[in-house]
């Protein structure tokens, strides 16, 4: 990559990843580096391989070649829960909240540091974890909804709850896949503010193709097309790029 990103120590290095679905290359020799505590937005037209890239980082999809390095450790093709335990957590495209649990219990499950089954035979969360849950409830604006079942939340609230769950894991790297899917303009800008409040403590990789949201977020943008790296730069730079316009923005304006 030509960008001068190698200065700070990178939290995640994706190096030459290729994912092959029966001959179709969903990701083709893709590389990317994320910096600690920074925001990165990954855009690209439908089918560009953004979600597959997330799946690969998180261990749900196995790559045919290339490597993923997280905090200096090679995590390529490890089981999901081991990758998560090292500090990467992902929010899915469709809200992945746990419907028959209350909002608070959803966060408590995420916030629990000790995930070994034989330590689970106790009632109630640890005091520090319970405090953290209350803090996150405040941060995502759901304090008053804490005892509601997640199934009864509005769509936008479910998205925030899941962002809250991802945050509660205290992961160093958060992968947010279309966090504003199905949201109106007010909710979208509230989500952008929420994401900004996470930076510094967490590195955040946001996948989206809603350009108004991407502009509101700001930060560095990486463009993907047909599984390959296309461009990287600020929102304005990417917008002005004719190649990007051709594959993505141009089509979106039609």
């Amino acid at each position: 990559m030509t960008m001068a990103t190698a200065t700070a120590d990178p939290i995640l290095k994706v190096d030459g990843i290729t994912v092959d679905f029966d001959g179709f290359k969903a990701i083709d020799n893709f590389s990317m580096t994320l910096e600690r505590g920074q925001l990165r937005v990954l855009i690209g037209p439908n089918g560009a391989g953004k979600s597959t890239l997330c799946d690969t980082i998180i261990g749900r999809v196995h790559s045919a070649s290339g490597s993923v390095t997280f905090n200096g450790e090679n995590i390529t093709n490890k089981p999901e829960f081991e990758i998560v335990r090292r500090g990467i957590c992902r929010k899915f495209q469709t809200p992945g909240v746990l419907p028959s649990l209350t909002v608070r219990d959803n966060l408590a499950v995420a916030a629990q540091r000790d995930r070994r089954w034989w330590t689970a035979f106790q009632i109630g969360a640890k005091a520090a974890e319970a405090r953290k849950v209350e803090d996150i409830l405040e941060q995502i604006g759901l304090t008053e909804r804490a005892d509601t079942l997640a199934a009864d939340l509005a769509h936008g609230e479910k998205q925030w709850l899941e962002i809250g769950m991802v945050v509660a894991t205290e992961a160093d790297l958060l992968l947010l896949d279309e966090p504003t899917a199905g949201m109106g303009p007010n909710e979208t800008s509230k989500t952008a503010k929420l994401i900004h409040s996470l930076l510094g403590k967490h590195a955040v990789l946001v996948i989206d193709h809603d350009m108004t949201f991407v502009e509101e977020l700001g930060g560095k943008v990486t463009v993907m097309h047909q599984g390959k790296f296309l461009k990287q730069g600020s929102v304005a730079e990417v917008r002005a790029d004719p190649e990007v316009a051709a594959v993505y923005l141009g089509r979106a304006k039609e």
């Binding site: 829960f81 649990l101 995420a110």
Partner: peptide, 16 residues
């Protein structure tokens, strides 16, 4: 109950 609701979500929160 969380596993019943969404086993994948629970796995991706780091639980086996």
């Amino acid at each position: 109950r969380a596993t019943r609701d969404g086993e994948n979500r629970v796995r991706f929160l780091g639980y086996n």
